[in-house]
Design a protein around this nucleic acid. Sequence first.
RNA 1: GGGGGUGUGGCGGAACUGGCAGACGCGCUAGAUUUAGGAUCUAGUGUCCUUUGGACGUGCAGGUUCGAUUCCUGUCACCCCCA
Length: 746
Amino acid sequence: MVRKPLRQWMLRITAYADRLEKDLESLDWSEGIKKLQRDWIGRSTGAEVDFYIGAKENVATWKSDRSASGFPRKPDSDVLRVYTTRPDTLFGATYMVLAPEHAAVESLTTDEQKSAVEDYVAKAAAKSDRDRQDDKTKKSGVFTGAYAINPINDKPVPIWIADYVLASYGTGAIMAVPAHDTRDFEFAKQYDIDIVPVVQPTDNDDIDLEKLAAGEICFAGMGTAINSEQYDGTPTAEFKQKITQSLGSMGVGSEAVNYKLRDWLFSRQRFWGEPFPILHELNQEQYSKGAVEFTGKVRTVADKDLPVELPKFDNFNVQEDAGAGNEYAPPLDFADEQWLYPEIDGVVYKRETNTMPQWAGSCWYYLRFIDPKNDKVFVDPELEKQWMPVDLYIGGAEHAVLHLLYARFWHKVLFDRGHLQTKEPFQKLVNQGMILGDIEFTGYQDGNSNWVSSNDVHRDEERQPITKSGEALTPVKIDPDDAQKSGNTFVLKEDSSISVDSRAYKMSKSRGNVVTPDNVVETHGADSLRLYEMFMGPLEQAKPWSTAGVSGVRNFLDRVWRLVVEGDKDADKNEAQNEITLSSAVVDTPPNEEQTRVLHQTIKAVTQDIEKLSFNTAIARMMEFANFFTKQKQRPKECLSQFLLLLSPFAPHIAEELWSVLGNENTLAYEPWPEFDEALTIESSVEVPVQIMGKIKARLNVPRGTSKDDLEKIALADEKVVELLKGKNIMKTVVVPDRLVNFVAK
RNA sequence: GGGGGUGUGGCGGAACUGGCAGACGCGCUAGAUUUAGGAUCUAGUGUCCUUUGGACGUGCAGGUUCGAUUCCUGUCACCCCCA
């Protein structure tokens, strides 16, 4: 593999880093996701410091010049500028490191080191940023032969090149403080560079001070300054401020903010993607001779010609040596001439042939959905005002840092350009949990097919199962019927000394535990599938699939069906009923008191549970309703109609069907949501437990709202309580009306 | 290594601001009905003990409280993400 620099389109998301971080505050998102975004943006405050690399004898002059001129916005060529989050460790900076791509590498390298440096730079170019930052691989680097001057103490420090420093972070150069940075430490050990500790850990840090002083260990925490001349004894936080200020007045440093967030590479060398509406002007003379040469001028495609559509095409591969200076040309470079070289006002242009990534759609689809047919603007401001922001966004946590950050960025750009009235697109965010495969039992066998208890199974570096001595083990899938519970684990039925793993795995083709929704719809129906997914457990939690559980909700829907429809004894469960007739139990009379109460309790619970996105408990309450009304010989139509409205968002098909069976003319979709009357949900009497020393000993049936005093009297009069309290002193009585009575007695 | 999350019956899970642990469903057991049922209905189903009854019980160990699944401290295990 070879890494080649390509000319690409970037979006300057870094310009929005600050706002993308700050505005998170206003959002109703989980702290976990907010933290992920904050960390991704990676705002840090520290200082930029210039190290002099000019001739040694000129250091004093440079310094006096700087104290007069102050810290320049851009570094001059006689300095190396570094960014550090720990300016307080400046006295411990014993070397500097440049990224291999740093612009100063060539000029700094001495003749003796030249070939070594060139070799190293070439090797680093072949590695990805990811590999370079991998902690597991050994640090590598090469000395340039040059030195820089540490501005705080005028000591010369060697300048190295190493690929653990990335050109894209900070200034592409660092001051290395091996005593207080783990990567610098590792590197210094490897190349035998001085290690000078300058931070004394506080007493509660468990650090061996002697080893630290000897340069044998590294301490990355905060503490107080040592070996830092006049700053000795200053606490880290205070030191940071002081030294930054001091560097500032010397003109060699300045407070700086840095972000881990990089600008966003936004072009792809693919056919399928939105074309950039950009035209490159061609040298007209050359073009007339059949040659393509750019003048360097670009213009955007006129509004009236938008959107740029992809040309008809049959070659979708990236081509090598496509000409026009592109060593690797995107497919669109091979589009027909008419598309590729439009002429405007007598000037011929070449279209941009990179295309946009998928994000180009996902970053603003929610805006277009508001007004999808508008051919004047991408969204009517009135409609935007009415609909935005998105009230509730339910999505997977895998979008935490990419999609959700990118979309926020676009939204802010559009806001700044005056196209939107909202600063943030997604007000509330909920991450739904993943549905895992069915629970599996796994046992382990050694080479002789003997079972090995899962307690004795270890994992090698690739997480493969091995024995303690390192022998490879084979995982064996076990039939649930062959496993049983024993204490906290599952064991084999045939040998209870062998424990087995039990867990649900992410659905994957390779594991073969994928459940296809279409198949479930086929066997159980779409309503059952939808209802089951909502019934499985809390929305945000990962939970294992269970096909048996689908039958459970299907049974519920069947019971609901029979609440309304006369049972057909000949009908098979999975076949359509021949004749659908209203059940004789359905009556047109008003509900009795208990039926009214159950209805209103159900409306209340379901309504509130939906608000909380607690769909599993909402469904449980509807099951209770169905169980209750199944037992009712007379089922008032009114109750059933209201119930069907509650059910309709969960199981729309059956609800609509039964709505019609009940004799309603129109669809239930336009019916108002049922309302409950709080007064009708309350039962007149309530059972109150009586505890003695915190143990329940009796239960009282009393009118709701019985006062504290009355409740205590009633409790004390209870036969059982009297008997148990005989000969004891009541030390304390706790009475919570409608809840409980507790006697503390000895 | 860093960050986030989760631990409650055989299983998925309930439990409002600390107040009857196990709602609801699956599974299991028994009964009714049925030519039959993997259909339906009814009842039971945390564990242990000698029963009427009692003891124990929300990963583990402590603490606060009349009272803790819930609050606090410590600890263990697992999952996810990042490195």
